[in-house]
Design a protein around this nucleic acid. Structure first.
Lengths: 207, 207, 207, 207
DNA sequence: AATGAATGAGTTTTCATTCAT
DNA sequence: AATGAATGAAAACTCATTCAT
């Protein structure tokens, strides 16, 4: 009865629905969200949801996919082949935190809700794995340290975990993006060294 | 028919139930777990569950509390006033990862299931906050760096996030506990410095 | 996209729709058939179905009527005033089985789907009643037996039941039409006699 | 609220439910029957239905099984090794019609409702096939006619069809059981002969 | 003449929770 | 102390039917 009663072309309605779905899922979690609630939030009837997306699972998958793409895209803008690895790494971290800062719901759906839902861990894990691999790569090329493959990998895991924790804080309140970036960057850059010695850095291309 | 038909003292029954509940919740998540399933796993009837714990929420809360206590207790064993802050920190990290390694279900219930459940985030957040504060304290006293309160706090947040990420890896497979400890420790100890300078360390007491 | 997008004269469209509807109803049954499915099968949009037929019930009724007419018509061709009752009866049976053999969907819609649908039993019963009466008449005139009206009537009921059962077999596989005809004919012609005596036959007219 | 509110032992409730289910299914058909309706008819709540039978399909299957057993049992009482084939056949027919006469709902569920429901045709077909085979056997042994295997088989099919048609009439009104039996019997006994010659009969054992 | 968009009303199914014994 | 029996309330999903264009 509110503002969505008009006939809209499919493409538009689809986005409208996803917007509502992402918002509600982010707020309540998957199981706690009723299709009725999403329908109400989107100002449409439940059957539309099923007509367009087939099932709750598929609707959620559509949410994850759309937000995932947004996320990937946002991250991509931070890549610049001319940057030193060091600066590249910092930029990646900044873009990540910035995305979370400006896309709370996306973030929550992707990294908190989907993760908890066994049917979707696969999708999320895959995307997270890619991110981790990317970070590992930056570390591997950026620091010259006596470190095993496993070290780089695990460091990347830890860094992403740190990033996610900081990200959660960011969604909660007013943390300065820049200093948060510095902090996470510092953890990775200096942290890997541990008791070992960082012997240098070099520039390189990253796709 | 199995082993639950006998009359058992209340204390024993309670643990039996919690054991079952923790196991099932850890495996399936909160909403995905039916009271029937828990009752079956505990070899008792559903009304018993309600008699002892009142409701599903309360039962889950009891799980979180018990596992939380276990966790706290495990961590406490790592505290030794005679240790240097540096070693103290490393020990804390080690104990944390060790606990996760040997208490998968506890870990999952506490940090993955409860976190996702809006009714319980409060409890979990509080406990996590305590951990973070402790870490922050260790950092604050352990390193002499020109860092703001927020820096210490956020660093602790990041470190705990890193620890949790590494912890998840540990539950999944065969990661060496010691090298994982080194890694997380390194992130915190050297990471905080960032471009700043670590000027020293000193010993101190921590409760 | 296929062949239904063009403007077609009403009569053609109507048949196109009924063809699709009969096919789907025969295959799935009444309740199991969705209007969507019929529309898709007919390469038209659902509103067209409603425009032409008003409701699912009415559409089904239209199917039953059309197929019923086809059936009646097919049966009529077998009538020949010059035939002896005996041959007439055999011909009727043959035409019936032949119709079923060459019109599986019609048969199923008329005698299996409609029969099971309480809203339509009336229609089907009426048509079946006519067939039964016809058969009863053939028996009455064709055999001279000491038999009551009820005997003739019930015998016709039984014969039609036998015919339907045989018909089902015919739709399922390769039963020889001629021997099936002989068999059903034999049941009626000799069967009525039972322990009574068939005293004769004579020729007559049937409309 | 009516008369079923009391706690009843499982076995009793199960029958109560099946009674209601058979009645409603027989009346309305499978798809046309809502679980709500059955629950209401059984004076219990819907969840009980699911608790005891799992799903609508399984409930229906339970109905078919129970009524099927009743049917088989009823038919079995008619078998007597001392009877001549001729009398045995007549008895079988009588028992069949008698069962239908006194068990309208069973009959409808088994032979009209289940038949129409694609998920269950298998069960019904199997049971019908057994009946047909039994009749075929009686014919084969009872009459000495020059007839092929297919003839006997198809005759049995036709006879059962005739029996079912007559059965339907019986459920509808006051048809005399004995004359109906005579009629169907006559169809089979004399009908098979057709233009061939019945050369004799003999006694034999049938399990 | 024809259809994409939209929904009210219902259906099956599940689950936390409570009695009566 | 313990449980089999029972249900209210809600959730996912479907479908005949209609409007606006």
């Amino acid at each position: 009865m509110a503002g969505g009663t008009k006939r809209l072309p499919r493409a538009v309605r689809e986005q409208q629905m996803l917007d509502a779905a992402v918002a509600v899922f982010a707020e309540k979690g998957f199981r706690e969200t009723a299709m009725d609630t999403i329908a109400a939030a989107a100002n449409i009837s439940k059957p539309m949801l099923y007509l367009y997306y087939g099932s709750k699972d598929e609707l959620f998958a559509a949410c994850v996919n759309r937000e995932g793409s947004r996320f990937i895209e946002a991250m991509s803008t931070g890549f610049d082949p001319n940057l030193k690895q060091r600066d590249q790494a910092r930029t990646v971290i900044y873009e990540f935190l910035h995305f979370v800062d400006t896309n709370r719901a996306s973030w929550r759906v992707l990294y908190r809700v989907a993760t908890a839902q066994s049917n979707f861990t696969a999708i999320v894990d895959a995307s997270r794995a890619r991110l981790i691999e990317m970070i590992a790569d930056l570390l591997r090329r950026g620091t010259t340290v006596e470190a095993t493959e496993t070290d780089f990998e695990l460091m990347a895991v830890a860094l992403v975990g740190a990033g996610e924790a900081v990200a959660d804080r960011i969604t909660e309140g007013d943390i300065d993006l820049d200093s948060a970036t510095d902090l996470v960057f510092g953890m990775g850059w200096h942290g890997l060294a541990g008791d070992k010695k960082v012997t240098g850095e070099h520039v390189s291309q990253i796709g």
